[in-house]
Design a protein around this nucleic acid. Structure first.
Length: 545
RNA sequence: GCGCCCGUAGCUCAGUCGGAUAGAGCAACAGCCUUCUAAGCUGUGGGUCAAUGGUUCGAAUCCAUUCGGGCGUACCA
């Protein structure tokens, strides 16, 4: 509906020979100003140097002639045009919502396009810790958003298994295994201290007894640990309903020659140089402080080179849109990686990098420590166990990725009205309750009856429909910015408007069957929008609470 | 030092491609359940939008500087 009105406004502007401008068309903060408000006249006025109110008057005169759409067109303030929209238009959105059902809100703006979302991508050196949760949950929502705007989405997980850390992992496990026989067996200085390594050692011992005591290489331990860690990571992700389509290993880039080829490519193009036995990528001094090492003097590439090769691999696989999610600790390094890809001659404009800030956990007023070094790590598993999958998902997605997040475990755990997750879910459960009662008291047929739209004339119902009609626009804009917290903000107003309606208007009324039927349809529409919104952010829609 | 992100109500945060009287949840206070779930609804109080200067019809929003916090600033990933 907004699109249609924007078009009318645009046509009016060109009809009056005003220059084409970018204007806003939004519901005003203050509802008494109307349903939509535009600053078009102010923008035009600036451009042509005339009084904005005069221009607004000219435009609004034409707009008023669309009397079937606008019930009032007013010029206000400095030159805003405020529009009130005919309630009948909103009543018809109800029919649309009921017809589209689970698809209401989806759009096909990117139909036929392929997107690749890479996230989590934690190396398999141990279980995911609670801090990983932010990107795990963000990615889940973002993948959904992409799908809701028509993309075919590949969910991808990239892991570095070629570097030193996997060797450390193997050494750590070997050491724990040997400690079963000799508790004084040395543990590597930079080893992984987690309890899970001891568990793996026990499992190996149970199966192999002491047959690996004199192993001449650690490949068994490496493979065992990698496999076990991945199993646990995948289990954790599955608890949250996440399944990656592709697990891409760094080793693959060595095997298929991508890394070697890229290095040769850099050399051919003259963008790399050698110094002190290492290979450096020449960086643009306006943007970077110094050149960066891509191959160490030991002959091993740094993480940058495989990362570049990996992204080039993704580009070559033909995606229209490539999205990475990283923590703020990668805030600078991804720029180096993109720079390298450009130097290799690839267009990086299809790559979008989402950086999220770090998370601190607290329990009430106490902060929860998340040290990687000690045994005392708060894992993502623990968090999910403590607060539940829905609250985990909700709390991580509730805020803009761009700001630091305080995760209050006590609040998330709280099974009460304090907890913002329940506010939304409760609205859904309430509606389900109404339908249970409707079937009980009026029979199943009542839900399928034809309804009379005129029975929804009361302000609460119209207000509710106005909010519901915004959902597709909301999805559309959020799937461009990839900021799922805005969906939550929207759902909050939807839930709030419903709770208000519920409080003021009784749905089931034996004396007014027609009204009952119409209101049931309205409830069905609210339930649809809530359910669809929940699907995007990735939480359940409970039928009772 | 340099780079990126942030600073909005007592707390946690929305709002930021410039728009009208800056919002929500929690906390505080006062009300509403013999009728579909009170995990709800209604109302009150609470603000130098970190500070200063600038740009203009108009700034929480853009620019500059300062202060404060986070993350980087490796031949770690």
């Amino acid at each position: 509906m907004k699109k249609k009105i924007a078009q009318i406004l645009k046509d009016t502007i060109s009809l009056k020979n005003y220059p084409e401008v970018g204007f806003s068309l939004e519901p005003p903060r203050n509802k008494s100003f109307g349903d939509l408000s535009t600053n078009a006249a102010l923008i035009i006025a600036k451009k042509v140097g005339k009084n904005p109110r005069d221009i607004a008057a000219v435009i609004s005169e034409t707009l008023s002639s669309y009397s079937d759409i606008f019930t009032s067109v007013d010029v206000a303030g400095a030159g805003f045009i405020n529009l009130k929209i005919n309630d009948n238009l909103y009543l018809h959105t109800l029919t649309d919502i009921l017809k589209e059902g689970r698809n209401y809100g989806k759009n096909q703006n990117n139909f036929g396009k392929k997107a690749n979302l890479e996230w989590v991508s934690a190396n398999p050196t141990g279980p995911l810790h609670a801090g990983h949760g932010r990107q795990v949950c963000l990615g889940k929502s973002i993948a959904n958003l992409l799908e809701w705007s028509g993309y075919e989405v590949t969910r991808e997980y990239y892991y570095n298994d070629a570097g030193n850390q996997m060797n450390n992992l193997a050494k750590s496990l070997y050491s724990r295994y040997m400690q079963i026989f000799d508790s004084s067996f040395p543990f590597p200085d930079d080893g992984y201290h987690g309890e899970y390594i001891k568990e793996y050692a026990e499992r190996i011992y149970a199966d192999k007894k002491d047959s690996l005591k004199n192993a001449d290489n650690l490949s068994f331990f490496k493979e065992f640990a990698e496999k076990a860690n991945f199993e646990r990571i995948k289990d954790t992700l599955e608890t949250l309903g996440i399944k990656h389509d592709v697990f891409f290993s760094e080793t693959e880039l060595y095997r298929n020659g991508d890394i070697k080829n890229l290095l040769a490519d850099f050399k051919d193009k003259g963008v790399s140089r050698e110094e002190d036995g290492a290979v450096w990528l020449k960086m643009d001094r306006d943007r970077f402080q110094k050149d960066k090492v891509i191959v160490k003097s030991t002959g091993e590439p740094t993480y940058r080179l495989p990362d570049m090769a990996y992204h080039i691999n993704k580009i070559k696989r033909g995606y229209d849109y490539i999205i990475d999610i990283f923590g703020s600790d990668h805030g600078d390094t991804y720029k180096e990686v993109l720079y390298g890809i450009e130097k290799a001659g690839y267009d990086t404009s299809c790559i979008k990098v989402i950086i999220h800030q770090m998370v601190t956990f607290k329990s009430g007023s106490e902060s929860v420590r998340m040290s990687k070094r000690s045994d005392n790590v708060y894992y993502l598993d623990d968090l999910i166990k403590d607060v539940g999958a829905d609250a985990t998902q909700f709390f991580f997605v509730m805020r803009a990725a761009n700001t630091h997040l305080d995760f209050d475990i006590e609040l998330a755990k709280e099974q009460s009205d304090k907890n913002p997750v329940y506010y939304l879910q409760y609205a859904h459960a309430r509606i389900c309750g109404i339908f249970r009662n409707a079937e009980l008291n009026f029979g199943k047929e009542i839900c399928e009856s034809e309804f009379d739209i005129k029975k929804l004339a009361e302000p609460g119902a119209v207000e509710l429909l106005k909010v519901l009609s915004r959902f597709p626009e909301e999805v559309e804009s959020v799937s461009e910015t990839l900021e799922p917290h805005k969906i939550i903000n929207y759902l909050n107003t939807a839930a709030e408007t419903f709770h208000k309606f519920y409080h003021d208007n009784r749905v089931l009324d034996a004396d007014n069957i027609d009204t009952t039927i119409a209101r049931l349809k309205l409830c069905e529409a609210v339930r649809t929008v809530l359910r669809n919104g929940f699907e995007i952010i990735g939480i359940n829609a409970p039928e009772r609470m």
